[in-house]
Every structure is written in structure tokens, then in C-alpha cells.
Amino acid sequence: MAKVPVQFTLNGSEKAEFIESGTTLLNALRDKIGDTSPKGGCHQGTCGACSVIIDGELKLSCLTLAETCGGADIKTTAGLAEGGVLHPLQRAFLDAFATQCGFCTPGMIMAAKVLLDRTPNPSREEVVEALSGNICRCTGYEPIIQAVLTAARASSQNAA
């Protein structure tokens, strides 16, 4: 199959690749570019483990064709830490024991980031709603909800 060129920004740096037409963004990120932070849980759009942020919107990278991402601004969990300092969400997930096997964590953090970018002080219900497309099989979810609420408080304190 013919390869197609695709160019986008990943966590602030320009990427240009030739990919097989029909390659998902998930596979392009993991196998071509080497960003393995998005996880392939189901490859059919139901677990949320592959979630990334494309132009500010939460997207499932397993259902997004890489070739449709030309010129896009893509963010993944791998790009969240700045200068070796963890993002407040990452810090809060660690502190709250919101990660056990860790497979759902990058997707959860992406979903939470989009929520906090829009709603800096969400209610518990808003957190539940925002993460409800993401499946976790380990934690029982409660520590994840608590981590997101903690991160929201930490960010708003820093901003104040």
C-alpha cells in the first residue's frame, strides 16, 4: 500500500513521517514515533486507554487515522512533565495511589486534563462525567476521582 506523508506537532515538537494509509494515530505514535504513552486497550473505541488531545479536544487515537492529523497539535501524557517536574495531575495520581497496573492512567490523565483546562474547579459529578469513557480494572475509580479533585485544587492554588 502506498505510504502517505503526515506532519503534525507532538507535545510541542514537529514530527514528519511516512505512514501506511489507514494507520491509526495510536499505532503511528507508538510504533513509528516511539511515544508509547497512549495505550492500546481495546483498539475499538471503548476503553479510553489510547486517549490523546488533538487541537484541545479529547480523542481516541485508536479511532483516529494518522493521515487525518496533518497540521494538528497533538498532546500526550508523555509531554506533560515540564523540565523534569511532574504535571499536577501526574503528581496527584501518584500521591493518591490512583494507579495500580497503570494501563488506564495515561488515558485517564488526558481526559482529566481536558476537563481541568475547561473547568478548573470541577465538582465530583463533573469528574465522573469527564472520565466515564475510560475503563479502569484495578483501582475501583475512587482514588482516580480523588486525584483529579486534588490536582484541580493544587492548580488553582498555584494560579492564585
Binding site: T46, C47, S132, R137
Partner: peptide, 17 residues
């Protein structure tokens, strides 16, 4: 047939614990 159909309580099903 997979982890999506093998049901467990989701975020919306959490009981106050």
C-alpha cells in the same frame, strides 16, 4: 468477548463506600 463486554461497575455505578 472482551474487557468491554465483561461487565464491571463503571464510574457512574460507584456506591458511596
Amino acid at each position: 468477548t472482551d474487557f468491554n463486554q465483561y461487565l464491571m461497575p463503571g464510574l457512574g455505578d460507584l456506591a458511596e463506600t
